[in-house]
Design a protein around this nucleic acid. Structure first.
Lengths: 181, 181
DNA sequence: TGTACATCAGTGAACGCGCGTTCACTGATGTAC
DNA sequence: TGTACATCAGTGAACGCGCGTTCACTGATGTAC
């Protein structure tokens, strides 16, 4: 008999994972419900109140985690535009739920301090992959191309026949911008 | 007394407009409900059954309309990569609800004949903006950059200070790909 | 021009359901002394 | 080391609500003759 203890011990962590799973496997972010997340986490559906407050609170935490993961991934890629861009695409495909929530600020508390700090980290990471002489147009192009590729991949809109690994498929595309300093 | 007639006369048209409006002004696609659309259209919430069947049926019609509008917009731009790309961005911002639904095939009947025909039209329009010698990597880059810019704009994620018109703001970014034949 | 009738478009009530949040509670943990 | 007690984490029932869909219906339209 493995009777679960009354106290979960790591509910916050488990809840975030269950949320990402629910978005990925359930009907997407549109169909996300706290009760479904609770079921996946094996916990009462009222248990989240202590950790996150309400539903937007839960999504705030997920978005903040997403920005932190993105910052980590881009930082690990080093100060190289193509590598950083490839890391961006890989992050989006590896964490589709985080990625989707991050870009829907209407669903969470956009002014949460933890969240804005994580956004700032991600921003720094992305900026440092560009030379300071790159200019805004170049920066927008770089961000647009990786963001667009990631979204198209996640929408399953890209033509068949691409490499099965999104990073590998994206690299030649991103490399067209290699002239950016 | 302007007592509405029993028969609406143009409910299909009105319903699609009300749906786009509900997505734009209500809480986004996630919060879309048939009953809200019916309220906006001034009609019983059961009235859609005759025209669209169920909720996915309504979204199928909206997506099909979106692909047709996109095809029209890109065709009108002529066989020029930058102009076609700018038209893509303008379309997305002018019709955000259509654009959002189009790239969520899980929400509609992706095999609907009217829909697939419209998709084919849009595909043709986009393809013809590229020379046949352009190659797949170039095509993916062009699509990615305009799709990414449009999504970032709609997410309100772009830095402040850009031109208020999304087409004008996007043009210099897209122009970086002018080397594509 | 009139009339019968089939078809179509829209109504309004009803259904069963899952939702987010609140509430009083209980079990477990940790700290003060 | 023991004990009292405050705090915290999780429970389970309850609430009110809006949802998508179905149903029998009614008003309007169009067609056959």
């Amino acid at each position: 008999m493995n009777h679960r203890p009354y106290h979960h011990g790591d509910l916050r962590r488990t809840a975030l994972e269950a949320t990402a799973e629910a978005i990925k496997e359930g009907g997407g972010l549109a169909a996300l419900s706290l009760r479904d997340v609770a079921r996946r986490a094996g916990v009462s559906h009222a248990a989240f109140k202590n950790h996150f407050g309400t539903k937007p609170g839960l999504l705030t935490a997920l978005a903040a985690e997403g920005y932190d993961l993105l910052a980590d991934a881009v930082n690990a890629a080093g100060d190289d535009l193509v590598e950083a861009g490839t890391a961006y695409v890989r992050f989006a495909v590896a964490h589709p739920a985080h990625f989707e929530v991050m870009f829907r600020p209407g669903l969470y508390h956009a002014d949460d301090p933890q969240l804005t700090a994580a956004q700032e980290r991600a921003n720094q990471a992305l900026t440092s992959a560009l030379s300071t002489s790159a200019g805004e147009t170049n920066a927008l192009a770089a961000w647009s191309i990786v963001h667009g590729f990631a979204n198209l991949w996640l929408s399953d809109a890209l033509p068949p026949g691409l490499d099965a690994d999104p990073g590998t498929a994206a690299r030649p595309v991103i490399s067209l911008l290699s002239f950016i300093p």
